[in-house]
Simulated scan of single mutants.
Amino acid sequence: MRAKRFTQVDVFSSEPFGGNPVAVVHDAEDMSDDAMAALARWTNLSETCFLLSPRDPQADYRVRIFSSLRELPFAGHPTLGTCHAWLAAGGSPRGREVVQECGVGLVRIRSDGDRLAFEAPPLLRSGPVEEALVARIAAACGLARAEVRDARWVDNGAGWLALMLTDRERLLALAPDLAGLHGVPFGLVAPWPGGEAAFEVRAFIGGDAVPEDPATGSFNAGLARWLVEERKAPASFVIAQGTAIGRAGRIHVDREGVQVWIGGTCVTRVEGRLHP
Score class of each variant (00 low, 15 high):
residue 194 G to F: 07
residue 93 P to H: 01
residue 97 E to L: 11
residue 198 A to R: 15
residue 230 E to C: 12
residue 209 A to I: 07
residue 142 G to Q: 12
residue 175 A to H: 14
residue 164 M to D: 11
residue 19 G to T: 10
residue 16 P to L: 13
residue 77 H to L: 09
residue 71 E to G: 07
residue 180 G to P: 09
residue 138 A to R: 05
residue 200 E to V: 15
residue 46 S to V: 05
residue 104 V to N: 07
residue 220 N to D: 13
residue 89 A to V: 05
residue 149 R to D: 07
residue 158 A to Q: 02
residue 37 A to P: 01
residue 128 P to I: 09
residue 56 D to F: 01
residue 187 G to D: 04
residue 41 R to Q: 14
residue 153 W to L: 00
residue 121 P to M: 09
residue 241 Q to C: 13
residue 42 W to D: 12
residue 183 G to T: 11
residue 68 S to V: 09
residue 198 A to Q: 14
residue 276 P to W: 08
residue 269 R to A: 14
residue 47 E to S: 06
residue 215 A to T: 02
residue 69 L to N: 13
residue 47 E to T: 04
residue 13 S to I: 04
residue 148 V to G: 10
residue 107 V to Q: 08
residue 89 A to T: 05
residue 51 L to C: 11
residue 181 L to N: 00
residue 167 D to P: 01
residue 169 E to G: 13
residue 113 G to L: 11
residue 10 D to C: 10
residue 37 A to Q: 15
residue 43 T to M: 14
residue 158 A to P: 04
residue 202 R to V: 03
residue 233 A to E: 00
residue 144 A to V: 03
residue 63 V to C: 10
residue 164 M to C: 12
residue 221 A to N: 06
residue 24 V to Q: 01
residue 276 P to Q: 13
residue 232 K to D: 09
residue 255 R to H: 04
residue 240 A to E: 11
residue 165 L to A: 02
residue 137 I to Q: 04
residue 9 V to Q: 06
residue 88 A to D: 12
residue 171 L to M: 07
residue 103 G to P: 00
residue 240 A to T: 02
residue 123 L to K: 03
residue 86 W to Y: 12
residue 208 D to Y: 03
residue 69 L to V: 09
residue 159 G to A: 06
residue 245 I to E: 04
residue 235 A to Y: 10
residue 211 P to A: 00
residue 161 L to A: 04
residue 262 I to E: 05
residue 224 A to Q: 03
residue 147 E to P: 09
residue 264 G to V: 08
residue 87 L to C: 10
